[in-house]
Amino acid sequence: MSNHLIIGQYVPGQSIIHRLDPRAKLLIVFAYVLIVFLANNAATYALLSVFAFLFAALSRIPFSYIMRGLRPVIWVVLFTFVLHVWMTKEGDVLYRIGALTIYEEGVRQGIFISLRFLLLVLMTTMLTLTTTPIEVTDGVESLLGPLKKMRVPVHELALMMAISLRFIPTLMEETEKIMKAQAARGVDFSGGRFSERMKAIVSLLVPLFISSFKRADELATAMEARGYRGGEGRTKFRQLAWKRTDTVFFAAVVLLAILLCLLRS
């Protein structure tokens, strides 16, 4: 649980997908989410599925991990499928079971919509499974770079995000410490009446806020003392490098989009 809060769903690895530039991965996933909606027949859905499953296979992430991410979605998908089969009343009749009649179009629609949903979730989880949150931040900062001309403070936003990511584990440790300290003084966090529980939460939040503000002040002072003066001319510890594989993967998505446009009915 605690690990999950800090690094999200990231599964460390050295696969070709892990090593892709985060910008390339962001662009690929974003493009994929858009072009999924182009598909409207068997051929186009098959192409999309092949792409997504190849992408997942190349990441070398064990199937069980991917399934764990998809588990909450499976029920929604099944529900959607059943709903479509039940509600659509077009095309030839396939089966007649008592009062329930299943139509061909219903099954078709059900499969397509569930598949679209599954593919959407699969590709977005592939991004978070193979990319650390800090890489995602760097990638977004770099991709939104051109917006700086429109005076959007991209650098500051990315730095804030990086600071948050850095402090999530620290604050979590702090929360645990405070809870233990308050429990030692007799505060009951796990039960009690509603008003008791609210009081318990306040006894946790007060020290947590004070220490957060103190940390913020210390960090800001440290940054200013070291001459931090905004994004202008700042050099970076983590450099992004666009490689040939990134171009290849990006080209594959563009090709996929073109094929979808040609094959859709």
């Binding site: 500051e156 804030m160 995000m161 604050l171 979590m172 957060s212 960090l219 800001a220 931090y228 905004g230």
Partner: peptide, 21 residues
């Protein structure tokens, strides 16, 4: 004018971490 000063955005970053938790 700067969009937001260093002290403010450091605080925003840390408070966001708290809010996330």
């Amino acid at each position: 004018m700067k969009f937001i000063n260093t002290r403010t955005f450091v605080a925003v970053g840390i408070l966001s971490a708290g809010a996330y938790l």
